[in-house]
Design a protein around this nucleic acid. Structure first.
Lengths: 107, 107
DNA sequence: CCGGACGGTAAGCATCCGCTTACGGTGGGC
DNA sequence: GCCCACCGTAAGCGGATGCTTACCGTCCGG
């Protein structure tokens, strides 16, 4: 959880994840999308891989990366249940009621 | 979004959010739950407030804090739709098929 | 074997981050 | 007015972080 959050807290790493969310890309391909050096991207890939957010596939000397949706499941669960669902539902219900109360008749 | 993630990336700040998720607590009350100094907590509160994750209410010289569920909505939405829902469903379907395929014939 | 492409790793450096102590500002009781 | 409780802010310090350059290992073609 901490590892996951730390990994996606960096904008560059989020961008990397978005890049490989829909397609598999090689390390060099990924790096070519940024203005920082390839080693920098390689280090980011290491962090993401360590957080189980990436899948690595080797083909010859190339390494292809792909996002791993499962990696975010834990975090999603955490955020979903951060406040009990009850609270969340109460909040939304309250919002709806506030509108009705504030508006009265008009839409 | 970046501000939100940066804010909750810190374990201590997450703990603070959890503390005030269900009840309103004063700054000193919150600080008493940790072993670091009050100024440290005050700084964390500042970060959380800046990320719109906290609501502050002043009562005399005391300041009460409460978590603000809305603050995480954006992040939750981001994570939900990180990969299209389609992809997510395809993934799960693929996983199931892979198991079958591993046994019998492949595509 | 030799050269080149690919890419991870090591070392060094500037910056950021979280913590501490010291301080200032505000509000309430007497 | 005076003192105290409460709490944010300033300044400084040590460790973490992200970047760079330099380097090494691996795989392929000749």
């Amino acid at each position: 959880m901490d590892t996951t959050l730390h990994a996606i807290a960096d904008p560059r790493r989020r961008r990397i994840l978005e890049l490989v969310a829909h397609e598999e890309l090689s390390a060099g391909d990924i790096a070519s999308h940024f203005e920082v050096s390839r080693p920098a991207i390689s280090q980011h890939l290491g962090v993401l891989k360590n957080a189980h957010l990436l899948i690595e596939r080797r083909e010859g000397t190339r390494r292809f990366y792909r996002a791993r949706p499962d990696g975010l499941d834990e975090l999603r669960g955490y955020l979903e249940h951060f406040w009990d669902h009850h609270l969340d539902q109460l909040k939304r219900a309250a919002e709806l009621r506030e509108r009705s109360v504030a508006d009265g008749a008009d839409g």
